[in-house]
Simulated assay, not measured.
Amino acid sequence: MTDLSRAEWRKSTKSSGSGSGCVEIAANLDGVTAVRDSKDPSLGAHVVDRAAFGAFLADVKDGRYDL
């Protein structure tokens, strides 16, 4: 299990104030990126390998997902 006590969370610039699609990421952890729902951080976080998260972001930017 990854220790998130030192995570520095930042809200996505794409998060809106309308109460939907609000996410935060912590990219200051060794080798991983953590993602959580900023509306309810008590639900925990998804922790993924930094390279895998980078590949996911590249796929999003390339339009590989129907968002």
Rank of each mutant, 00 (worst) to 15 (best):
R10W: 01
K39A: 15
L29M: 13
G21I: 04
T2Q: 13
P41F: 11
V47N: 02
K14R: 15
L57T: 14
R64P: 00
Y65K: 04
T2W: 05
R6Q: 15
S12G: 10
V32D: 02
Y65R: 02
G44Q: 07
D66I: 00
L67E: 01
L57K: 13
S12M: 12
P41G: 13
D3A: 04
S20P: 00
G44L: 05
A55T: 06
L67A: 03
A26S: 09
K11N: 08
G31H: 07
D3T: 03
N28V: 08
T33H: 10
D30R: 13
C22H: 10
G17Q: 12
K61Q: 06
D66M: 06
L29Q: 04
A27M: 11
D59I: 03
F53S: 04
R64Q: 14
V47Y: 01
L4H: 03
R6Y: 02
A27K: 11
V60A: 11
V48F: 15
D62W: 00
G63D: 12
C22A: 14
S12C: 08
A7W: 01
A26Y: 07
V32K: 07
R10D: 00
A27T: 15
S16V: 10
F56H: 04
S12T: 09
R36M: 08
T2R: 13
F53W: 15
H46S: 11
A26F: 09
V47T: 04
V47E: 01
L29V: 05
A45F: 03
A45Q: 05
D30P: 15
K39F: 10
